[in-house]
Design a protein around this nucleic acid. Structure first.
Lengths: 223, 223
DNA sequence: CCGGCGGTCGAGGAGATCGTGACGACTACT
DNA sequence: AGTAGTCGTCACGATCTCCTCGACCGCCGG
């Protein structure tokens, strides 16, 4: 059996709780790395590859929210769950705003924690029906982009397919061949890709799709 | 174009639906194998090589979840999508826990199914190569440097090649001849190196590349 | 203070790549 | 059929990249 174990990074300052969670995760088949403060956690998160992060909110040196915000700014997109003694709605929003995918208040039920971790590991894989893109949301069902100001742009089928392709992996660069294969399976010339990028830009603004000269196209998540 | 068609394994007991999906997949350019029950599906999945699996949840002999769990235990890591009449959250979690990458409730939109299959296939190919440099990350694939503040700088092909050369061995000093040989094989004058160092400094900041007078250039790891 | 040797920087041209509008074919709905 | 919307091809102009060249600048030893 050479299957890869899911890797979790645990950052928790309470030694007792940390040991308990490590044991719990290992028992569930995770490969666990752990750190006792934000600084060490940051270093581990930047140097290693993890499937999911479990961060305590209150940490020495650098708290969990700060740590997560730093990671997100560095482009780390690993799903993260925040553990916190603070559980009211405002605190939750703060956590999610910092870039967390889930937020669990202490004391928590270990089974619930494990269930949420499983869900997290899958969530970014399961296809969403609405994607976040630069300057709005993209609703696949209605093939329309809703801008912050409320205006709506409806895309044609191919336009939508192209945007979906790009939006499912923000910041990833797609080569023309790659796009051609998935979005324009019936096209003969790669020129279609340029044309449809042009259509998207006309409808969504010049900055919506960025060109990487000699490589391909990509879209970002940030404005 | 002699490219290999993507192969999909379809396990569905409803003959009518199976025929419809087969036709749909073939129309999208997939090579389709199909089975009508879990037993046959398991055999096919174990003996063949597929890019993606589409499994009905309710199957005769061995249901889709069971089938998938068996496959995962056998070390088969092919991306799988579960089709099911059951669509509530608990059912979804069950499906994802069984090792599915995605879960779609019947009745489903065929375009959505196709889109999710494309997304699944791609996820399998992902590989981000990124180097850590002074003041940011350098993503080889997109040839772009992401700074801590979130700003992105896109490099040209040669700029990227030069930065990669320097970044692969941080703190090592590279002579012009050395750089010329590896980065500018077509150049005739050594002056190109200086020019491109200049380009890099203009895009990444004056401190990004340091000069060792009379010897060459280097970059560091720390800010 | 002053040559001289790198090193820095900008200009520019050839060639590659990309943007864009126009056009014909196809489809769907009337 | 008729119309509108969409799809895919194409060609030319705009832009970017790569590399050369030459002028300027700054760090050195006299």
């Amino acid at each position: 059996m050479n299957e890869m174990k899911p890797r979790v990074l645990l950052v928790e300052d309470d030694a007792q709780l940390r040991a308990m969670l490590e044991e719990l995760f290992v028992g569930e088949g995770y490969e666990v790395s752990s750190a006792s403060d934000g600084q060490k956690g940051l270093h581990l998160a930047l140097t290693g590859e993890f499937d999911v992060l479990v961060l305590d909110r209150g940490l020495p040196v650098m708290d969990g929210l700060n740590l997560l915000a730093r990671l997100r700014r560095e482009g780390v997109e690993t799903a993260a769950l925040i553990l916190s003694a603070l559980g009211n709605p405002a605190d939750r929003v703060e956590g999610l705003d910092a870039g967390a995918e889930d937020y669990l208040a202490k004391p928590f039920d270990v089974d619930e924690l494990l269930a949420r971790l499983r869900a997290l590991r899958r969530r970014h894989i399961a296809a969403a029906t609405t994607l976040r893109i630069t300057g709005g949301r993209f609703d696949l069902e209605s093939r329309s982009v809703i801008r912050p100001d409320g205006s709506v742009v409806v895309l044609s089928e191919r336009e939508s397919a192209l945007l979906e392709e790009l939006a499912r992996w923000p910041n990833r660069v797609f080569g023309r061949d790659e796009i051609l294969e998935y979005v324009f399976p019936n096209a003969e010339e790669a020129g279609v890709v340029d044309t449809y990028v042009h259509y998207l830009r006309r409808k969504l603004g010049r900055g919506s799709v960025r060109t990487i000269h000699g490589v391909g196209y990509r879209i970002g998540t940030l404005a």
